[in-house]
Amino acid sequence: MDIDLIKAFCKLAEKGHYGLASQVLFISQSALTKKIQRLEKDIGCKLFERGIRGTRLTKAGTILLPEAKRLENNFDTFKVLSKNVSSGKCGQLKVGYGISSYQIAPKYIYSFKKNYPDIHVTLDDIPSYKQVNMLLEGRIQISFNRIPISHSLVSIPIGTDRLAIAIHNSIIIDDHHIFDIIKDLDYMRLTEERGPGLAIQIKKYLDEVNLNLYVVREAKDILTLLSMVAANMGYTIIPLSAKLLTLDQIQYIDLPYFNTKWDVGIIWNKSINDPIRDNFIEHIKEELCNN
């Protein structure tokens, strides 16, 4: 059944006159008459009685009108919804992030949601290598991750991060003799499985300074690792951005020399068509231009 026939039925019932209804619908009276006749034929009963002063609903028309209005309203709602979905203004955005984007990711998502309130955003803390696989498989739409990447993905740099030592506040640090101070302390780290990118970055740095650290303890998440540092169980090397999660008992010390910095950006799979993701990317580009 054609929705235009339902609309014609509702409008004629509202106006009670073929001439008035046809003007609102921007069609001729004869075209409106044909639409009503087609609808009556499809339904199998008469909907209107014509009189000298206009039309009035039959008993069947009176019964069917509320449902016809509901169908008309639902169709209009569907049109608006489908337009918003196709233009990326409504739907779901799945985002992955990691240690280096604890501050960056929420900031951009917050400003994006103000402009696109009908988009439901999910934000999950996911290891960097898993984010890449999930992008390739289409299980997430955006990744906040270290760049560059070696896969067929696209990225935009939005910030930087660097390595730092996290150590208990009670330990007095001399920036010129950091390694002399920590050599007698227990070294703790995030498991390589949880942070493979971080493990590679730390290894590059340790190779540069010709330092071999013996791992005494490992943690499967960054909060547990920092809790052990806060308990003065040892020290760790982590991204400076993790300072946002720190406890009062922890101090952060920049590491000397090179290979301590890396770029952080948003990454996506351009081979997948996704208007919601594209709107998010354009939003971030605008934010970067304005800052």
Rank of each mutant, 00 (worst) to 15 (best):
L47I: 09
K59A: 12
L211N: 06
K79R: 15
I147W: 02
R189P: 02
I284H: 05
P148R: 13
A13L: 01
S241F: 00
E67M: 07
G54M: 10
E40M: 04
I27L: 06
K11T: 00
K94I: 13
K130H: 14
I140D: 05
E72R: 02
V264L: 11
Q249A: 09
R56L: 08
F48N: 01
D186H: 14
R56G: 04
D161A: 06
Q201V: 15
T55Q: 13
K41V: 14
N269L: 07
L213C: 05
L223V: 13
A31L: 03
T62C: 12
P106G: 01
Y18I: 14
G96M: 04
L198A: 05
P117N: 06
G61Q: 05
Y205G: 04
D221I: 05
K243S: 04
Q131T: 03
F280C: 11
H168T: 05
L255D: 01
R194Y: 08
K46A: 04
D161Y: 00
P106C: 02
E67N: 11
L47T: 07
A105E: 05
S28C: 03
A21S: 07
K83M: 09
A242P: 09
R277Y: 07
I181E: 00
C10Q: 10
I119Y: 09
C289P: 01
D2F: 02
C289N: 13
I126T: 12
E137Q: 15
Y257D: 15
K79M: 14
L123I: 06
I272E: 10
I171W: 02
V132D: 08
A164E: 04
I284R: 11
K270S: 15
K243E: 08
I6L: 03
L47Y: 00
D2P: 03
I52C: 07
Q37E: 15
Y110E: 15
S170P: 10
K285Q: 09
G195V: 06
G88V: 00
D221K: 11
F48D: 01
S143D: 10
L223Q: 11
S30K: 13
S87Y: 12
K203E: 08
P256A: 11
D161W: 00
I104V: 02
C10D: 08
I3V: 12
E14N: 04
K113D: 01
I250L: 07
L39Q: 03
K41M: 11
D2W: 02
L71D: 04
R146T: 15
Y102C: 14
W268S: 08
S143C: 09
I281K: 06
Y18E: 13
A31K: 10
K203S: 07
P275M: 00
P256M: 12
S28W: 00
L211Q: 13
L93M: 10
